[in-house]
Amino acid sequence: MDEFALIPNPNDEKLLQTLSGLDESGQPVIIKVPVERPLTLFLNGQEIVTMMTIGDYPEYLATGYLLNQNMLTLKDKITAIDVDEDLGVVVVRTDQKTNFEEKLKKKTITSGCAQGTVFGDMMERFESIHLNKEAILLTSWLKDLFLKITHQPSLYLEAGAIHGCVLCHEVSPLIYMEDVGRHNAIDKLAGYIYHQNLTTEDKILYTTGRLTSEMVIKTVQMQIPILISRSGFTAWGVELARKAGLTLIGRAKGSRFIALSGQERIKFSPSKF
Rank of each mutant, 00 (worst) to 15 (best):
D56K: 09
D179L: 11
S255I: 15
N9W: 10
D12Y: 09
E134W: 10
M215N: 13
L41Y: 15
E239R: 07
V29F: 04
Q17L: 03
L6S: 14
A5W: 08
G45K: 14
L39R: 07
K272E: 13
Y192K: 03
T212P: 11
F257V: 05
F146A: 08
E3M: 14
H163D: 02
M222D: 01
I226F: 07
K253M: 09
I224M: 04
S261T: 15
H151Y: 04
G209K: 00
I175V: 06
N99W: 00
L61I: 06
T199N: 01
N68Y: 13
V166S: 00
Q96L: 02
S154E: 04
L246P: 07
L19M: 11
K243L: 13
N11F: 11
E178T: 03
L198Y: 00
L61F: 11
L157M: 07
T63M: 08
L6K: 14
I175A: 07
F4S: 05
I204L: 08
S172Y: 03
H195Y: 01
A135H: 02
T219K: 00
P225T: 10
I258V: 13
T247N: 11
V166C: 04
K243G: 11
T117N: 03
Y206V: 05
E239D: 15
I109Q: 13
L198K: 05
D2I: 14
T247F: 10
W236S: 15
E85T: 04
P34Y: 09
S255Q: 14
I266Q: 07
Y60W: 14
T18E: 07
F268T: 13
L174K: 01
L157E: 09
Q46R: 14
D84S: 02
S269V: 12
V35C: 11
P153M: 02
F100I: 02
R265H: 12
L19I: 11
A185R: 04
L74K: 12
A161N: 10
L137W: 03
L174F: 09
L167F: 05
A244T: 08
L15H: 03
V180G: 00
T98P: 00
A252L: 11
K253V: 10
C165H: 06
E170I: 12
M215A: 06
E124P: 00
R242H: 14
Y206Q: 05
G160P: 01
G116T: 03
E264D: 11
I31C: 01
Q69C: 09
S154G: 08
D2E: 08
R256W: 15
V220Q: 04
V166H: 04
P28C: 09
S261N: 06
I228G: 08
S20N: 11
S231Y: 01
R182P: 10
S111W: 06
D2K: 15
D84M: 05
V90L: 00
I7D: 12
F257E: 12
N197R: 05
G120I: 09
A159Q: 03
N70G: 08
E47C: 12
D84Y: 01
D144S: 07
L246N: 06
M1F: 14
V216P: 09
K267R: 14
G112H: 04
I109R: 13
I258E: 01
T18P: 12
G254T: 13
D179A: 03
S128R: 01
K14G: 07
